[in-house]
Design a protein around this nucleic acid. Structure first.
Length: 196
DNA sequence: AGGCTCATGACTC
DNA sequence: GAGTCATGAGCCT
């Protein structure tokens, strides 16, 4: 039984996030679905692999780990639960504009290029920003500015891999896979100024 | 300030 | 291969 994933939800003041775990770590973090997810992202997910998803039934509105095990459909390995606690705590720190500590391992699936970009993003600390061009420089491909934007958009674990801290050269917003409202909000929580 | 154009790397179909 | 970008710089008006 390989390629098994566990999905668990995290209730926050900003809505219910969904965390997806592979055997290696946190593989995906999804923003609260305000409605339909973008069709593009959805099809990318579908194409991804044939793994089957094991959804745990989590219903308790205000706890990130459901205590009500009677509704649980499957056994969640303890290491996943441990990661999930770290994710939930880290997420809440991040949403408050603080640096998370003790994040779970991240299992970022992507091309070599994308992983280099995501790695560079993780070095941008809260309150700091870089431009797409500066990220391109940081990974040694100064001309790959647009490709950096593409890699940001493909980031499976937003917030922990802080693509919201990447602004356009003029300090304007650029884009954001989770919607520009989220980007604005996340930047504001870290006290980051940007141009309209 | 806004608009247009082009170079550009990576990715998708 | 053409088309698509979460860019950037340059050059207009």
């Amino acid at each position: 039984m390989k390629n098994q994933f566990f999905q668990l939800s995290i209730a926050t003041r900003d809505g219910q996030f969904i965390a997806r775990y592979s055997a290696k770590g946190l593989a995906e973090l999804r923003f609260p679905s305000v409605g339909r997810a973008s069709p593009r992202a959805a099809s990318r997910r579908r194409r991804g692999n044939e793994s089957h998803f094991l959804n745990s039934e989590l219903r308790t509105p205000n706890s990130e780990l459901n205590g009500d095990s009677s509704r649980r459909l499957l056994q969640i390995p303890t290491h996943i639960l441990r990661w999930h606690r770290a994710t939930a705590a880290g997420l809440k720190s991040s949403l408050a504009g603080r640096k998370p500590k003790n994040l779970p391992p991240l299992d970022l699936a992507g091309t070599e290029f994308q992983k280099r970009v995501w790695n560079a993003l993780r070095k941008i600390s809260p309150g700091q920003t870089k431009s797409y061009g500066e990220v391109a420089q940081a990974i040694g491909k100064p001309k790959a500015v647009r490709a950096v934007g593409g890699a940001c958009g493909a980031n499976p674990v937003p917030i922990f891999v802080p693509c919201h801290r990447v602004l356009a050269a003029n300090k304007k917003l650029g884009g954001f896979s989770g919607g520009l409202d989220w980007k604005r909000s996340l930047l504001a929580r870290e006290g980051i100024e940007f141009n309209v």
